[in-house]
Design a protein around this nucleic acid. Sequence first.
DNA 1: AGCGGTCAAGTTGAT
DNA 2: ATCAACTTGACCGCT
Length: 304
Amino acid sequence: MSNQRLGIRWGLCCLFKEEPITFAIRQATHLGKLDRPRQLAQLSATVLHNGNSLIRAIEFCHRQGIGGFRVNSRIFPLKTHPQLGYLLEELPEYDLLDQTYQQAAVLAARLDIRLTFHPDQFTLLSSADAGVTARSLAELAYHGEAAERIGADVITLHGGGGYGDKPAALGRVVALIERLPDSIRSRLALENDDRVYTPADLLPVCAATGIPFIYDVHHHRCHPDGLAIEEVSERACSTWAREPLFHLSSPKEGWQAANPRPHHDFIDIDDLPQCWRHLRITIEVEAKAKEIALKKLADELSAA
DNA sequence: AGCGGTCAAGTTGAT
DNA sequence: ATCAACTTGACCGCT
């Protein structure tokens, strides 16, 4: 990453609103009805499409002055599915898609676009269920491999379920993190969520494990813990040996709404904490209008 | 081409 | 009990 850049690196999450760059998936229900060669052919075409889209996404971000891109976990769809899972090497177009993803990796590094992953809600470090844990570890292994392939440097997870006993659940999180292979642990980061685990819950876990903390200020505002934004921001930064990663969004129907958790199409500039504005951090913007929201935010900030 | 039902996985909380 | 929400709409069969 560049040492010349000043200020905030803005990150776009997964998708585009208007720019015609798309990522495709496959549905297990339908794919399962095909024979294996047809399954692999469809998966190959989809993975290749997604690789080309990733290249175009990186190029778009560079043109727009966007410095980060979160990659959708389903970029290799159904890769960890118990019946339909596959190795990239099995796909008929492997050589071409290998080259394509290498090209994406080289491009992201050259253009200094920070790539991240955010595995979905089924990936849990806190579960007491051995099956859930095993599937989560498989999912993390997948993300670790994918991250290595494209040079992504963060895999973001929440604390997971509380199961009525958060200290016990966090104990399982710590124990599991300590057993993770380095390819995953070196990229893993923990983010506060809007229902269960606050910054006050997770900062000690991060201190105990050396895993960095991702501060989502919207989640913190929905699910506060008595800590001030300034304090959490400072403590979050201190968990990062590299550029910190934060999340920002605005409530769909305002802070007075019965449910402020759903995300707005755009970012209300007042939701960007003052104390973030001088930091050298990555802020991933979770706004439904995607690249349009980032453009609007950048315009408003430069006009301010 | 466009529409509507459906889509791997776990947990929570609103209804 | 059901269901939407979660980092995110897209797929697929039908008309």
